[in-house]
């Protein structure tokens, strides 16, 4: 089990490194693409600035506080996208018959799919999110405690895992409908957009569903409430507010189940 995990990680590193080397051979193109990614995702934040030229707060949150939510959400999505962004091309591979090639290699097909065409230029998006996040941290007058400091890596790690699971589930669906890759966007990019704003702007019922059904609030909302020292609109017990690891674990389990079921289906239909 541990051996298998280690060999999978090693294979991932080997594949990813190969793609990094390829992208670095075209340095100019790589630089342009990375800066491009930085600017594209930057416009998302400019849109928030435009809104704030008309208002002073949204849902009771100031610009800096929303920048904190935005940065956290975009950072987690960016990291997940870097790790396995090309998994969404599964349907395309199935249609072209090239997924078979991955199944005859001695490495898990999941690892190969994740590492396929690993794109270091996605650091552009991560950097942009990081800059906004860092600005928010500086601009906000946070009452730092050790727990709050620790909450920042906690937010990034578990938020990323949640998005990794959503990307995986979205890709696994393509074992059933190979041309429905866009469905996943609703949950990944949609989920990240949703989490860029305070939950106070959404109906309470929706926030409950986003906590207990599709646990997107654990990406950055509850960790941010703790760091920014804001009350939970749902008034949930604090134990629930710290349940990001549980949400991440449950979603990961669901993702693994979906992926396995998808592979099983593929291996009994061959298409």
């Amino acid at each position: 089990m541990v051996d298998a995990a280690r060999s999978d990680l090693r294979a991932y590193a080997v594949l990813a490194w190969m793609w990094i080397r390829v992208s670095l051979t075209y340095r100019t193109s790589f630089a342009i693409m990375t800066i491009g990614q930085f600017l594209i995702t930057g416009l998302d934040f400019v849109a928030i600035l435009v809104m704030f030229s008309n208002v002073d707060s949204l849902g009771g949150f100031s610009l800096a506080e929303i920048a904190f939510l935005y940065g956290g959400s975009a950072l987690c999505l960016g990291c997940a996208d870097l790790v396995l962004g090309n998994i969404e091309r599964l349907g395309q591979r199935i249609r072209m018959g090239t997924f078979d090639v991955m199944l005859v290699r001695p490495v898990s097909a999941y690892i190969q799919m994740c590492a396929d065409q690993f794109a270091l230029r996605r650091l552009g998006r991560i950097t942009q999110a990081g800059v906004v996040f860092a600005w928010a941290i500086v601009a906000l007058d946070i009452d730092w405690t050790w727990a709050r400091v620790a909450m920042i890596p906690y937010l990034v790690v578990f938020g990323t895992v949640i998005f990794l699971a959503l990307f995986t589930i979205g890709a696994a669906v393509q074992f059933w409908t190979s041309d429905a890759s866009e469905l996943a966007n609703a949950f990944t990019y949609g989920g990240s957009t949703l989490a860029e704003y305070p939950m106070t702007i959404y109906p309470l019922e929706a926030v409950k569903a986003l906590t207990f059904v599709l646990p997107l609030t654990f990406v950055n909302w509850y960790p941010s409430l703790f760091i920014l020292d804001k009350p939970d609109p749902l008034g949930l017990p604090s134990a629930v507010q710290f349940a990001a690891p549980v949400a991440a674990a449950v979603l990961s389990l669901a993702a693994a189940t979906c992926w396995r079921a998808g592979i099983r289906r593929y291996r009994s239909t061959g298409s």
Partner: peptide, 19 residues
């Protein structure tokens, strides 16, 4: 299938943007 998936995604984004 792609069209249905797209409609779903557009609807989700529509709802988020509305709020």
């Amino acid at each position: 299938a792609a069209t249905l998936a797209g409609i779903f995604t557009n609807s989700v984004f529509g709802i988020i943007i509305c709020f």
